[in-house]
């Protein structure tokens, strides 16, 4: 019986072994784009066929509108987005000194609305917030993801990494189980991609609309039957941060198309 107990202990120790996830070497990183069929690729590549461009155009119109009591348009402070917003989405989420925490692009837009436009916040996944963020991120299309270098971000990135490695939900799976360890395989019919955040907001054929990175993350969480964090939750921003640091150097594709 003593022997059996020792073996049980050994078995439990093995059971506590960490996840075997290995990070993807930089030269093997691949955008979700490279997993798609020729039709979806063509749709993303051709601006006249890419449905996401409709949001980009609407975003450009909103850039010049004055929605709030301060009677300021984005353009009144930032001028021509083609110059001023170039590269911005490639380094978000970024550290906000006043708040002492990272904010993602959607949160930055809403901070500007509150502080500089005296306009009400836009909801996550609302048409206007998607349009503005798509327009801004489109100014970085083709530019390499270049994470904000503020050293105060380190603990937030580390928490995002931890979340990525954490098994969760009723199915007890971690993001890394699929996106680090099994990205060359298929889940039912779908290619499991590396989960690279290069194209957001992006047009997902399954959604029949544009959606944010947070929407995608919540989808994967619900997929493993975990409790999805609320839009804007610090955990989702931390995951976004980690994903962007994991994808450093990969080009922005916004607005991407995905199945």
């Amino acid at each position: 019986m003593k022997r059996a107990c020792a073996m049980l202990v050994a078995a439990l120790l093995v059971a506590a072994a960490p996840l075997r996830a290995a990070e993807i070497p930089p030269d093997q990183r691949r955008s979700g784009y490279s997993f798609m069929g020729p039709d979806s690729k063509a749709m993303q590549d051709d601006d006249t066929a890419n449905p996401g461009m409709l949001w980009v155009l609407d975003g450009e119109a909103l850039w010049n509108k004055r929605p709030g009591a301060a009677n300021n348009a984005c353009a009144d402070c930032h001028g021509d987005a083609r110059a001023s917003m170039k590269g911005v989405a490639a380094r978000y989420p970024a550290f906000d000194k006043a708040l002492g925490r990272p904010v993602d692009l959607e949160q930055r837009i809403n901070l500007c609305r509150a502080q500089h436009q005296q306009a009400p916040a836009l909801d996550y996944e609302s048409h206007d917030l998607l349009a503005l963020s798509a327009f801004i991120a489109n100014q970085s299309r083709g530019m390499p993801i270049t994470p904000d270098g503020d050293s105060q971000l380190a603990p937030f990135i580390a928490r995002g990494h931890e979340l990525f490695m954490q098994r969760q939900g009723q199915l007890n799976l971690a993001c890394a189980n699929c996106h680090d360890d099994n990205w060359d395989k298929r889940l039912a019919g779908a290619a499991i991609t590396q989960g690279q955040p290069t194209g957001y907001p992006m047009y997902r054929l399954e959604w029949q609309t544009l959606g944010s990175l947070q929407r995608r993350l919540r989808g994967c969480m619900t997929g493993i039957r975990a409790q999805a964090y609320n839009y804007g939750a610090p955990e989702l921003v931390e995951l976004e941060l980690y994903l962007m640091s994991r994808a450093a150097g990969m080009p922005i594709e916004t607005p991407a198309v995905r199945p």
């Binding site: 098994r167 969760q168 939900g169 009723q170 799976l173 360890d181 969480m221 039957r225 975990a226």
Partner: peptide
């Protein structure tokens, strides 16, 4: 990666 289909303990952050 195969889930434990008849287990409720030791799970984290399970959806409501």
């Amino acid at each position: 990666i195969m889930p434990s289909f008849y287990r409720v303990d030791g799970l984290v952050h399970v959806g409501q």
